[in-house]
Design a protein around this nucleic acid. Sequence first.
RNA 1: GGCGACGUAGCCAAGUGGUAAGGCAGAGGUCUGCAAAACCUUCAUCGCGGGUUCGAUUCCCGCCGUCGCCUCCA
Length: 477
Amino acid sequence: MAPPGVRLFNSASRQVEPFVPLVPGQAGIYDCGPTVYDWQTIGNLYRYIVSDVQRRTLEYLGYRVKAVMNITDVGHIVGDVDEGEDRMMLAAKREGRDPETLAHKYTEQFMDDRRKLNILEPHVMPKATEHVPEMIHLIKRLIDTGHAYVAADGVYFDIATFRGYGTRLAGELTQDLVAGARVDVNPNKRNPADFALWRAAKPGDLQVWDSPWGRGNPGWHIECSAMSMKYLGETFDIHSGGEDNLFPHHESEIAQSEAATGKPFVRYWTHVRFLKVDGGAMHKSAGNAYLLKDLESWGFEPLAFRMLVLNNKYRQPLDFTRAGLASAQNRLDRWRGIVRDAWQATGGTPIDVSPDDPRRTTFVASLTDDLNTPAALAQAEAVLDLAATGDVATKRHALEVLFDMDQVLALSLRERASDADLSAEERAALAERDDARKKGDYKRSDELRAELERRYGIRVKDTKDGTRWERVRRRGA
RNA sequence: GGCGACGUAGCCAAGUGGUAAGGCAGAGGUCUGCAAAACCUUCAUCGCGGGUUCGAUUCCCGCCGUCGCCUCCA
């Protein structure tokens, strides 16, 4: 059975298109991974939440997805820094550690943040440093086919040999660049816009490899071509990244990949807009390049950030503000409360949803419309209303539908509801308090209520349908 | 300067050629021993000015405003 159609915005055509995978029912996705030289900001994490929704949507619809995300653990030159410096090297100096240790540390932290945000692990997570032979092989192919040339300080891709370089996604390019207007022209290049495939080692380089062109290190773009093609084939379905990757990174990937293979490289390019903060750009120098741990220190849970992201269409710029995050947290808290109450009212429920449930249908329609998550949230909220107001059978059904939807939303609705189970001790305390209250001993009952919150972190609520309770979440200022 | 995006209620945010989803906050109410939660009700004519149309928030033009990129091997 073919999965339902999805429509995705393709940067290559600049319009929303039906997604038609190479192999029916399957999808190969390559996600441009981070350079692991520091903590990842919420801007980066935002990007991966969007990728996660994309992947989860495809899987929810029945596609068999192969998800690949690279780890860039090779440094690449930073623009306005002394020559020869790169990110890994700067970080290594900063922390007094070797690049390998550093990469390991920040990869772990990144994966940790991802888990907190319910971002699924990629099936394959190739590291650049472990794929230098593949890159060298690809560079050889480019030299052999006349698309690359060896110069004094490395190997360059000759953009004159690839028609349309820089216009496949970005659309504009590069009069300025070609003319060398904004950058000093490197005399070793045939064309100022030629990009490096391999760089000759310079004194002080911490990461160098042997190659047919001497010791050196690979260019930035070549790693993604080499690794994506290795794990997904020379043509694959989806390549995603941030809008900052459009040019030069992805344009260069297209050029070098298609020049080498003579085949189309990627069928669908999907790009996420930059995250803004308080209405403006996020910059480390501006002090607003927040980390997930910052949000947590303010008393928010990571999934509140996910909720905030879901409330926005990924192709609209998302403006991160603390007030917005608080709003998302409140919204999530309400969801949690309703789910928890319904869970307690129904005694839990198995997940078993009819695929043609009408609520599910509209939910799917929202997602397949280029991942319209705000609309999907509204659909889920219609079901939430049933969970809040329906009779027991309705609540049970609503929970089933919500948990089903949560396979895409990934807000841990079920986990949090069932996690709320009581220990025997807590159960006894709760029963004792109930007992006192029924007898009209409000003094004792109130004491026990305070006790429950203080000792167990359990807040008691008396409703007309019986006593409900919840775990108290600590909330900072 | 070049390229691009956006401007919907206090805030966030969908959407459509036929008078605008959802959420947060607020207000009123129900329930309740108290508390908390939940629930109910309430809260916009879509930046401004033209045009096209039977009809525009949705299409076109102009203006105003806000923002992003053009600083990661070019």
